[in-house]
Protein backbone atom coordinates (compact mmCIF):
# COMPACT_ATOMS: atom_id res chain seq x y z
CA UNK A 1 0.00 0.00 0.00
CA UNK A 2 1.42 3.30 -1.09
CA UNK A 3 1.57 6.18 1.32
CA UNK A 4 -0.65 9.00 0.10
CA UNK A 5 -1.27 12.00 2.24
CA UNK A 6 -4.15 14.29 1.49
CA UNK A 7 -4.32 17.36 3.65
CA UNK A 8 -6.91 19.16 1.53
CA UNK A 9 -9.95 17.38 3.03
CA UNK A 10 -8.76 18.47 6.45
CA UNK A 11 -7.89 22.01 5.47
CA UNK A 12 -11.29 22.36 3.78
CA UNK A 13 -12.81 22.17 7.23
CA UNK A 14 -10.85 25.19 8.43
CA UNK A 15 -14.00 26.79 9.82
CA UNK A 16 -14.57 23.99 12.34
CA UNK A 17 -10.87 24.00 13.20
CA UNK A 18 -11.04 27.74 13.78
CA UNK A 19 -14.11 27.34 15.99
CA UNK A 20 -12.35 24.62 17.96
CA UNK A 21 -9.22 26.71 18.40
CA UNK A 22 -11.33 29.66 19.55
CA UNK A 23 -13.05 27.49 22.14
CA UNK A 24 -9.68 26.15 23.32
CA UNK A 25 -8.47 29.71 23.83
CA UNK A 26 -11.72 30.64 25.60
CA UNK A 27 -11.34 27.72 27.98
CA UNK A 28 -7.73 28.66 28.62
CA UNK A 29 -8.66 32.31 29.18
CA UNK A 30 -11.40 31.53 31.71
CA UNK A 31 -9.20 29.04 33.56
CA UNK A 32 -6.22 31.43 33.61
CA UNK A 33 -8.25 34.34 34.99
CA UNK A 34 -10.23 32.35 37.58
CA UNK A 35 -7.28 30.08 38.39
CA UNK A 36 -5.07 33.15 38.81
CA UNK A 37 -7.48 34.62 41.35
CA UNK A 38 -7.67 31.28 43.20
CA UNK A 39 -3.87 31.19 43.09
CA UNK A 40 -3.50 34.59 44.77
CA UNK A 41 -5.93 33.70 47.57
CA UNK A 42 -4.54 30.18 47.89
CA UNK A 43 -1.01 31.50 48.24
CA UNK A 44 -2.10 34.07 50.84
CA UNK A 45 -3.94 31.27 52.66
CA UNK A 46 -0.92 29.00 52.61
CA UNK A 47 1.29 31.60 54.31
CA UNK A 48 -1.35 33.53 56.19
CA UNK A 49 -0.72 32.12 59.68
CA UNK A 50 -4.08 30.43 60.28
CA UNK A 51 -3.17 26.71 60.67
CA UNK A 52 -6.57 25.43 59.52
CA UNK A 53 -6.56 27.56 56.35
CA UNK A 54 -2.94 26.59 55.69
CA UNK A 55 -3.87 22.92 55.99
CA UNK A 56 -6.88 23.28 53.70
CA UNK A 57 -4.92 25.11 51.02
CA UNK A 58 -2.11 22.58 51.31
CA UNK A 59 -4.53 19.65 50.93
CA UNK A 60 -6.08 21.32 47.87
CA UNK A 61 -2.70 21.84 46.21
CA UNK A 62 -1.38 18.35 46.96
CA UNK A 63 -4.65 16.66 46.03
CA UNK A 64 -4.80 18.33 42.63
CA UNK A 65 -1.10 18.09 41.82
CA UNK A 66 -0.94 14.37 42.52
CA UNK A 67 -3.95 13.20 40.49
CA UNK A 68 -4.43 13.26 36.70
CA UNK A 69 -6.48 16.00 35.08
CA UNK A 70 -8.55 13.39 33.23
CA UNK A 71 -9.75 11.89 36.52
CA UNK A 72 -10.44 15.36 37.94
CA UNK A 73 -12.55 16.19 34.91
CA UNK A 74 -14.58 12.98 35.30
CA UNK A 75 -15.03 13.67 39.01
CA UNK A 76 -16.34 17.19 38.38
CA UNK A 77 -18.51 16.00 35.49
CA UNK A 78 -20.13 13.09 37.34
CA UNK A 79 -19.95 14.79 40.72
CA UNK A 80 -22.03 17.76 39.57
CA UNK A 81 -24.56 15.54 37.82
CA UNK A 82 -24.93 13.23 40.82
CA UNK A 83 -25.80 16.35 42.84
CA UNK A 84 -28.57 16.84 40.30
CA UNK A 85 -26.89 19.83 38.67
CA UNK A 86 -26.87 19.86 34.88
CA UNK A 87 -24.31 22.02 33.13
CA UNK A 88 -23.01 22.14 29.59
CA UNK A 89 -19.80 20.29 28.81
CA UNK A 90 -18.10 23.66 28.29
CA UNK A 91 -19.00 24.84 31.80
CA UNK A 92 -17.82 21.59 33.38
CA UNK A 93 -14.59 21.78 31.39
CA UNK A 94 -14.00 25.38 32.47
CA UNK A 95 -14.67 24.52 36.13
CA UNK A 96 -12.39 21.48 36.10
CA UNK A 97 -9.55 23.35 34.37
CA UNK A 98 -9.93 26.26 36.81
CA UNK A 99 -9.73 23.96 39.83
CA UNK A 100 -6.70 22.28 38.29
CA UNK A 101 -4.70 25.34 37.34
CA UNK A 102 -5.68 27.09 40.58
CA UNK A 103 -3.62 24.54 42.54
CA UNK A 104 -0.52 24.95 40.38
CA UNK A 105 -0.86 28.73 40.45
CA UNK A 106 -1.19 28.69 44.24
CA UNK A 107 2.13 26.87 44.51
CA UNK A 108 3.92 29.14 42.03
CA UNK A 109 2.56 32.33 43.61
CA UNK A 110 3.50 31.11 47.07
CA UNK A 111 7.09 30.78 45.87
CA UNK A 112 6.86 34.33 44.52
CA UNK A 113 5.37 35.77 47.71
CA UNK A 114 7.93 33.91 49.85
CA UNK A 115 10.73 35.46 47.81
CA UNK A 116 9.86 38.96 49.04
CA UNK A 117 12.48 39.82 51.64
CA UNK A 118 11.25 40.58 55.13
CA UNK A 119 12.85 44.00 55.15
CA UNK A 120 10.50 45.18 52.41
CA UNK A 121 7.43 44.22 54.42
CA UNK A 122 8.87 45.80 57.58
CA UNK A 123 9.62 48.96 55.66
CA UNK A 124 6.04 49.05 54.40
CA UNK A 125 4.77 48.56 57.95
CA UNK A 126 7.05 51.37 59.06
CA UNK A 127 5.46 53.63 56.46
CA UNK A 128 2.09 52.90 58.03
CA UNK A 129 0.57 50.94 55.13
CA UNK A 130 -2.42 48.80 56.01
CA UNK A 131 -2.22 45.03 55.77
CA UNK A 132 -4.20 45.02 52.51
CA UNK A 133 -1.98 47.73 51.05
CA UNK A 134 1.14 45.80 52.01
CA UNK A 135 -0.20 42.66 50.36
CA UNK A 136 -1.24 44.49 47.20
CA UNK A 137 1.77 46.75 46.67
CA UNK A 138 4.64 44.92 48.32
CA UNK A 139 3.83 41.22 48.19
CA UNK A 140 1.35 40.37 45.42
CA UNK A 141 2.57 42.41 42.46
CA UNK A 142 6.33 42.15 43.05
CA UNK A 143 5.82 38.46 43.87
CA UNK A 144 3.92 37.82 40.64
CA UNK A 145 6.57 39.74 38.72
CA UNK A 146 9.26 37.36 39.98
CA UNK A 147 7.42 34.17 39.05
CA UNK A 148 5.87 35.51 35.85
CA UNK A 149 7.90 33.22 33.53
CA UNK A 150 6.86 30.16 35.55
CA UNK A 151 3.23 31.30 35.44
CA UNK A 152 3.45 31.75 31.67
CA UNK A 153 4.74 28.19 31.19
CA UNK A 154 2.06 26.81 33.49
CA UNK A 155 -0.69 28.62 31.60
CA UNK A 156 0.58 27.38 28.24
CA UNK A 157 0.63 23.84 29.66
CA UNK A 158 -2.94 24.40 30.79
CA UNK A 159 -4.00 25.41 27.29
CA UNK A 160 -2.48 22.19 25.95
CA UNK A 161 -4.07 20.18 28.76
CA UNK A 162 -7.49 21.58 27.85
CA UNK A 163 -7.39 19.02 25.01
CA UNK A 164 -8.33 16.43 27.64
CA UNK A 165 -11.77 18.04 28.01
CA UNK A 166 -12.63 16.54 24.61
CA UNK A 167 -13.26 13.38 26.65
CA UNK A 168 -16.43 14.91 28.11
CA UNK A 169 -17.25 16.24 24.64
CA UNK A 170 -16.46 19.89 25.13
CA UNK A 171 -16.25 21.06 21.53
CA UNK A 172 -12.68 22.34 21.64
CA UNK A 173 -9.91 21.76 19.11
CA UNK A 174 -9.18 18.10 19.89
CA UNK A 175 -12.88 17.21 19.85
CA UNK A 176 -13.16 18.91 16.46
CA UNK A 177 -10.19 16.86 15.30
CA UNK A 178 -11.83 13.63 16.46
CA UNK A 179 -14.95 14.61 14.58
CA UNK A 180 -13.10 15.51 11.38
CA UNK A 181 -11.07 12.31 11.36
CA UNK A 182 -14.17 10.19 11.87
CA UNK A 183 -15.77 11.94 8.93
CA UNK A 184 -12.83 11.92 6.52
CA UNK A 185 -10.91 8.78 7.62
CA UNK A 186 -7.81 11.00 7.36
CA UNK A 187 -6.75 10.70 10.98
CA UNK A 188 -3.02 11.05 10.36
CA UNK A 189 -3.39 14.29 8.42
CA UNK A 190 -6.00 15.62 10.84
CA UNK A 191 -3.89 15.13 13.94
CA UNK A 192 -0.78 16.52 12.24
CA UNK A 193 -2.67 19.69 11.33
CA UNK A 194 -4.16 19.95 14.81
CA UNK A 195 -0.77 19.40 16.45
CA UNK A 196 0.63 22.29 14.40
CA UNK A 197 -2.34 24.47 15.39
CA UNK A 198 -1.57 23.74 19.04
CA UNK A 199 2.08 24.66 18.48
CA UNK A 200 0.93 27.93 16.92
CA UNK A 201 -1.50 28.58 19.78
CA UNK A 202 1.23 28.08 22.34
CA UNK A 203 3.45 30.58 20.51
CA UNK A 204 0.55 33.03 20.38
CA UNK A 205 -0.04 32.58 24.11
CA UNK A 206 3.62 33.10 24.98
CA UNK A 207 3.68 36.25 22.86
CA UNK A 208 0.46 37.47 24.50
CA UNK A 209 1.89 36.96 27.97
CA UNK A 210 5.05 38.80 26.94
CA UNK A 211 2.97 41.77 25.74
CA UNK A 212 0.96 41.63 28.95
CA UNK A 213 4.16 41.72 30.99
CA UNK A 214 5.11 45.00 29.29
CA UNK A 215 1.82 46.50 30.45
CA UNK A 216 1.86 44.95 33.93
CA UNK A 217 5.44 45.63 34.90
CA UNK A 218 6.43 49.01 33.42
CA UNK A 219 9.38 49.28 35.79
CA UNK A 220 10.97 46.25 34.11
CA UNK A 221 10.48 47.81 30.71
CA UNK A 222 12.14 51.04 31.77
CA UNK A 223 15.08 49.24 33.35
CA UNK A 224 15.33 46.96 30.34
CA UNK A 225 15.81 43.87 32.48
CA UNK A 226 14.47 40.67 31.00
CA UNK A 227 11.78 38.80 32.86
Amino acid sequence: MGLELDFSVVLDRWRSLLDGATLTLQLAFIAVVCGGIIGVFGAIGRRGGNPLVERLCGAYVEGIRNTPLLVQIFLVYFGLSSLGLKFSAFTVAAVALTINVGAYTTEIMRAGFDSIVKGQIEAAEGLGLSKAQIYWHVIIWPGIERVYPALTSQFVLLMLASSVTSQISAEELTAVANYIQSETYRSFETYIVVALIYVALSFVMRFGFWLLSLALFPRRRRLGTPL
Binding site: S187, F188, Y191
Partner: peptide, 24 residues
Amino acid sequence: VQLIQGTPLLVIMFLSFFGLAAIG
Protein backbone atom coordinates in the same frame (compact mmCIF):
# COMPACT_ATOMS: atom_id res chain seq x y z
CA VAL B 1 11.57 20.25 22.07
CA GLN B 2 9.56 23.21 20.79
CA LEU B 3 7.27 21.03 18.67
CA ILE B 4 6.58 18.43 21.34
CA GLN B 5 6.21 20.94 24.16
CA GLY B 6 3.71 22.82 22.01
CA THR B 7 1.55 19.75 21.33
CA PRO B 8 -0.80 18.12 23.84
CA LEU B 9 0.11 14.56 24.78
CA LEU B 10 -3.44 13.57 23.91
CA VAL B 11 -2.92 14.60 20.28
CA ILE B 12 0.38 12.70 20.17
CA MET B 13 -1.50 9.64 21.45
CA PHE B 14 -4.19 9.98 18.79
CA LEU B 15 -1.57 10.56 16.12
CA SER B 16 0.42 7.46 16.96
CA PHE B 17 -2.60 5.19 17.40
CA PHE B 18 -5.27 6.31 14.90
CA GLY B 19 -2.97 8.32 12.67
CA LEU B 20 -0.44 5.58 12.04
CA ALA B 21 -3.22 3.03 11.56
CA ALA B 22 -4.79 5.24 8.90
CA ILE B 23 -1.60 5.29 6.83
CA GLY B 24 -1.15 1.56 7.12
